[in-house]
Amino acid sequence: MSFSTQVMNPQPSLTMPSSNIEVVIPDDGRQETRYFAFISIAVVVVAGMLLWLNHSGAQTKLSELPNQLSNSATQISNAIAELNMLDEAGLLTYPLSAELLPLPVIPGASLHEFSQTCYVIEQAGYLFAIEKETAWQAHWAKSDLIADCHANLNWHELNH
């Protein structure tokens, strides 16, 4: 805060005849108090936003797949990794069939073979498509009907 000073007319005094009374009045014409408050609030808001951005950026996203199906997705993901390793090592014998592949046996799920390179596992209204394009991969989608790997459904990565 800054203040301006002004010397007022000297008043007669018995005790200190030569003294002046100085009245200091606040000069709030420049609105320092308000600016200070604005800046303080702005700093707090910006810091809060940065913290929020930092926190939300680092968060790992949960899968949209229901929790009770995540183990099925994990087992299928493991099978995909194994299929790719076996395929790379030339250990998959063609023509392929579901019995020859290391696909998981999931209680309450049914396996559908559409072709040598397209298998679908259905569980509780969700489809897991296992297919080979350049490499083996798998996706999931919500569907009440059994459909093949290329059906027009909203497919998701297994971990999304």
Binding site: Q59, T60, L62, S70, A73, T74, S77, A81
Partner: peptide, 14 residues
């Protein structure tokens, strides 16, 4: 290590 794991959690917390 968890990049390919289908994660579970509650209330958006992994």
């Amino acid at each position: 290590a968890n990049q390919d794991v289908p994660l579970i959690g509650h209330d958006e917390k992994v």
